[in-house]
Design a binder for these strands. Structure first.
Lengths: 339, 339
DNA sequence: TAAATAAACGAAACCGGTTTCAAAATAGAT
DNA sequence: ATCTATTTTGAAACCGGTTTCGTTTATTTA
């Protein structure tokens, strides 16, 4: 568009007004040394007077740096987990002058082709990427990603490469804490509900769950194990199934969304938590507080921060060591001693 | 970074390999006419062989177009409403080759200054912007925005200018439908709970509510009107307050989040919906289905689509006529006839 | 077959910055 | 006052595309 005929003002304009070369203006903009203080002030004054701000596109082209970070999320977009991680990413990258490119699915009009991860990154020349909650095997490009030179940090997926690293919670510990909590309340018969074990956190939690259950001499029948989905609906499904069984657990360990669904399903049946069933959750989502759910917290905001810092480190050729976040038990009211 | 020494391949490389000029390659890329079919095929072949994709940054600089759209959201980021609108934006803009820039709060390292709306847009040379659910008076830059030449579309805020337009639901109708529904079930004493009336939708809904209540000869005591917040917590607050009143409504009209909070609060008190209170919601959020809430639906995904199309129209100098989306009643189980 | 017309192509300028490096200006030393 | 060392400065190349417009090549027409 012709922008109402008003051409944005450029570095050349500033140079002319200030009677210096554009090279000098550029150096002032970037706070380089070797510029006379008087000159610097004069240039700054002109810049201010004309409300000048450098064209990021031109700067990107020239510097081969976009100050853009791509944010890719597994399809169940904007779920409750992301919702708490993203602000940490935003705050950290934002304070370093980065903007976040939230990738849409298609590319330049033309053919409507769906482009993959790498193409998107290269195309926009992002300086790096953060990938949230992808599930192993869901993206065929992971290998080329590892071989590529685009800095990337995964959250909740353990993938490493020269320019690739990850942030993940200590999910094994989470499960241990959950089971130990129930054990200490006297529970011995305990079930489990979480998302697909192709998800790394769910896989690790399940390992931790089984190990701890065995170590403490507790029992978990195979039919008490549900591993399909992360949503509330699934919680209803879990309760329906449990209901129809002869033997039932006295307690369940379940991811928060699922746990909330379970609680609601029980309520609708006139039962209560923890009266009829004790539940310990995973994640400590925002909603869990409202349901008074005892749960093992993931430090979600902090994960966003950590992932961003890790990414910046990789971009700047510093450490790319993976980060494991601590977890801890948040005691609320969804568990009680066995009668 | 040195990108592992691998320089990305450029249009010049392609031109050389294909024995043509970069101008010709450019024309092939952009599907211009006036290129011999044989030449075109040859160039395309080389492009494919080298897995070439044009540098968007360079293209943006040259074309004075970024194919970037800024997405700004009022701070209660990623709430349940946005969550359903955004996919519509994404799909529509994505299919047109646009990417979405999700704006973070700070700009180029330097001073850590917080930049405003306009600066962000200009700085990144976005082709346009979509602003979600901002509240009148919350952003001081609205006026300069109206005067500016950056195409912008508001969702849920009625602001118009030469390059500015908006998309909003027919909120007045929503309220009318809600009240009429309750009236037809015999309710005459009805309360109201919604967010601040500084929000345009909440304002319009309230007008519609009062008008319809009066028109149909129903009653709404002043103390039955709650207009502070859009969240579940507020629903608890509403129920607590109602509880303590001598006169109580037989039904409430309430925004979905608030309604859900009310339902939960009632459950916790051993009461039921609609047994003890009928409720009609606004919005039809995802969660409302799980609560079996009768509600007036906003076409959220479609609003995202409409806003995107409107924005593209403005960018391409076509119509900038505001769009009002229809709403309709979704009958579920949260209302019953008065006994 | 020559001239007129149409189609295809490419040289060069441009978008708005950064960076290199030689030249100019200034300061310091003798 | 002259010469050297140090700061400052700016011309020009570069980043990787797009676009204009004149030139070359191919096709028609006479």
């Amino acid at each position: 568009m012709d922008k109402a005929g008003v051409r944005a003002i450029t570095i050349d304009d500033i140079a002319k007004k200030a009677n210096v070369s554009k090279a000098t203006v550029s150096k002032v903009i970037n706070s380089y040394s070797g510029i006379n203080e008087k000159t610097r002030q004069a240039v700054l004054k002109v810049m201010r007077e004309h409300n000048y701000w450098p064209n990021t596109t031109a700067r990107s082209l020239s510097m081969q740096r976009s100050y853009l970070v791509g944010l890719f999320m597994a399809s169940e977009l904007l779920d409750s987990f992301f919702r708490e991680v993203i602000p940490g990413i935003e705050a950290t990258l934002g304070s370093q002058g980065y903007d976040i490119l939230y990738f849409a699915d298609k590319r330049p009009g033309n053919t409507g082709v769906t482009f993959g991860y790498l193409e998107k990154c290269r195309d926009r020349r992002v300086d790096g990427a953060i990938l949230l909650s992808y599930i192993r095997g869901d993206i065929p490009e992971f290998e080329s990603l590892l071989a590529s030179d685009i800095p990337a940090v995964f959250i909740d997926m353990t993938l490493e490469g020269p320019y690739t690293s990850y942030v993940i919670s200590d999910n094994h510990k989470s499960a241990r804490l959950a089971v130990e909590c129930l054990h200490s309340l006297g529970h011995r018969e305990v079930g489990y509900a979480d998302g697909t074990s192709r998800s790394v956190p769910a896989e690790r939690r399940f390992q931790g769950f089984m190990e701890t259950v065995n170590r403490l001499g507790m029992h978990c029948r195979p039919e008490w194990i549900f591993q399909d989905s992360f949503d509330e609906e699934y919680g209803y499904h879990v309760i329906e199934n449990l209901e129809s069984m002869e033997q039932q657990p006295t307690a369940m360990v379940a991811q928060d969304n699922v746990a909330v669904g379970m609680i609601r399903a029980l309520w609708e049946r006139g039962k209560s938590v923890p009266g009829d069933l004790s539940i310990v959750g995973f994640d400590d989502l925002e909603i869990s507080r409202h349901y008074n759910l005892t749960t093992v917290k993931q430090q979600k905001y902090e994960m966003g921060v950590a992932a961003s810092e890790l990414l910046l480190n990789i971009i700047n050729h510093k450490s790319n060591k993976p980060i494991v976040m601590d977890t801890d038990l948040i005691i609320r009211g969804s568990c009680m001693s066995i009668k």
